[in-house]
Lab assay of single mutants.
Amino acid sequence: MAAAAAAGAGPEMVRGQVFDVGPRYTNLSYIGEGAYGMVCSAYDNVNKVRVAIKKISPFEHQTYCQRTLREIKILLRFRHENIIGINDIIRAPTIEQMKDVYIVQDLMETDLYKLLKTQHLSNDHICYFLYQILRGLKYIHSANVLHRDLKPSNLLLNTTCDLKICDFGLARVADPDHDHTGFLTEYVATRWYRAPEIMLNSKGYTKSIDIWSVGCILAEMLSNRPIFPGKHYLDQLNHILGILGSPSQEDLNCIINLKARNYLLSLPHKNKVPWNRLFPNADSKALDLLDKMLTFNPHKRIEVEQALAHPYLEQYYDPSDEPIAEAPFKFDMELDDLPKEKLKELIFEETARFQPGYRS
Rank of each mutant, 00 (worst) to 15 (best):
K54C: 01
N47V: 11
R301F: 01
L222D: 09
N297W: 06
D336I: 01
S248L: 10
I198T: 00
L116P: 10
A5V: 13
K300Y: 08
D321S: 04
F354R: 10
K138E: 14
L287F: 06
L121M: 15
H239G: 10
I217N: 15
G34H: 00
Y193M: 08
V39Q: 08
N238Y: 14
P196Y: 06
V273N: 00
I240K: 05
H239E: 10
N47F: 12
Y30H: 03
A2M: 13
K292N: 14
L116D: 08
S248H: 01
W275P: 11
G37K: 09
I89T: 03
E81M: 09
G169K: 04
W192V: 10
G22L: 07
N144H: 06
Y193Q: 10
E349Y: 00
D44R: 05
V188I: 14
A5I: 04
P176W: 09
L290K: 04
K272M: 09
D100M: 01
A35C: 02
H178V: 12
F296D: 04
G245A: 06
Q236N: 05
N144Q: 12
Q97F: 06
N123E: 10
G230F: 01
L150H: 06
K270L: 07
L28T: 07
F183R: 06
K73A: 13
K344R: 14
C65M: 06
K272V: 07
T94F: 11
G37Q: 08
C166Y: 14
E71I: 01
N262D: 07
E250G: 09
N262W: 04
K151N: 12
R191E: 08
L134R: 04
R70H: 09
K259G: 03
G37M: 06
E341A: 06
V145Y: 02
A4V: 12
A42Y: 00
R50Y: 06
L244K: 03
A309M: 03
Y131N: 15
P323M: 06
I103T: 03
M108H: 04
W192N: 10
S122N: 13
A327Y: 01
G10S: 11
A307F: 00
M38C: 07
D100V: 14
N276S: 12
C161G: 02
A219S: 14
R353W: 04
G37Y: 12
T351C: 04
R261Y: 09
A189F: 08
Q17E: 07
G8F: 08
L338M: 15
Y358R: 11
S248Y: 14
P280Y: 11
G34S: 00
L241N: 04
D167K: 01
L241Q: 00
E96H: 02
C65V: 08
P11W: 13
N297Q: 11
E33S: 00
D124E: 14
T118G: 09
W275T: 11
K114V: 13
I255W: 10
A7I: 06
N281A: 02
L28R: 05
A4I: 02
N123Q: 10
R15T: 09
D337I: 06
D175A: 15
F331L: 15
P93T: 15
L335S: 11
F296S: 14
E71H: 00
H299D: 11
I243C: 03
E350R: 01
H239M: 09
I53M: 14
L76M: 11
I347Y: 05
L76F: 01
I56T: 04
K117Y: 07
L294E: 06
N154D: 04
I53H: 00
A42L: 02
T94R: 13
T190W: 06
S41G: 04
S223Q: 14
I86Y: 02
K207M: 15
L200V: 13
K207S: 13
A309T: 14
A3E: 05
L75A: 04
H232L: 15
K48T: 12
C254W: 03
Y128C: 11
I89F: 13
K231A: 03
P23S: 06
Q66H: 15
N281T: 15
G242H: 09
E186W: 01
K73C: 14
T94C: 11
L146Y: 06
D235T: 03
T351A: 13
H61R: 10
F129M: 07
Q119F: 10
H180K: 08
W212R: 15
D235C: 04
K48Y: 11
H269F: 02
G242Y: 05
H61D: 02
